[in-house]
Amino acid sequence: MGAAAEPFLEVEGLEKVFRIRRRAGRLRRERVEVRAVDGLSFTVPRGEMVGFIGPNGAGKSTTVKMLTGILAPSGGRLRVAGLDPSRERVELTRRIGVVFGQRTTLWWDLPLRDSYRLMRRMYRIPAARYRENLDRCTELLDLGPLLTVPVRQLSLGQRMRADIAAALLHDPEVLYLDEPTIGLDVVSKSAVRRFLADLNSERSTTVLLTTHDLGDIEQLCERVLVIDHGRLMYDGALAGLHEVGESERVLVVDLARELPPISGLDGARTLRTEGPRQWLAFPASASAAPLVGRVAAEYPLVDLSVQEPAIEDVIARMYAGRTG
């Protein structure tokens, strides 16, 4: 289909400058310009799931706010589904879904079902469609027993799932997710990820995912956009990001007894030891299996775990590599 190549999100030379007044003495104040987004360009085709990452204050949420139309850009061009977000905000709100991990849109004191009925009115969802979508979300996000429970009584994981359902009842064409798995336990995390993956493949909903959790990105996104200081630092696959950043994973091994630092293993170096426990760094792009095999063969291995690199570290290293 020719439409597949048509970009759904179009961002070209996007800028946002804030003028902030700062104290510069007892009475005097000076105006300071902060360039939160500084010449950002990218496009996302319909149905793609993109990870949007960067350190705190990199300009991610400012960009999302411009994409959703609640903030007008200072410069550049912006189109979402062919609409100009800040000019056609209300029209756009009917076609987008937004989930903020740390914020809720649900009615705190009332049963969950009431909030969903409200969504139905708000987005004017036809009855049959509403029922179908609600049933689907209820089943896949396991909300059945929660519908009659007041929102304030839900656990964090339950509330997050409930919020995700609330954002999807009106069949949005694009879903913005901000830290959708923050604070969730392993079971809830994997339920949310599975649901999002299904949503993307079955309904071809375009998804822009902002997160600090590398696991989210790894399991959901083929493409990653890294931004820092309001600029695009990287656009491509996650694996490539590791290469660019030369990031390392860490193998933590518990040996039967305290031993001198493990050495002589190709591609791995011992970071530190603490009693019988040792930390071995190896390239993130390499498989852990051969390394584990060799340690197990040569040392009295009791237990092990692998630590993924934090996204901030990867980005920091990448940044250092570019400028340094």
């Binding site: 209300v90 987008i96 937004v98 903020f100 708000m122």
Partner: peptide
């Protein structure tokens, strides 16, 4: 104060 009002602005209301 908490910024939750931003979520309200994403709604067609």
């Amino acid at each position: 104060r908490t910024g939750d009002v931003a979520v309200d602005l994403y709604r067609p209301i």
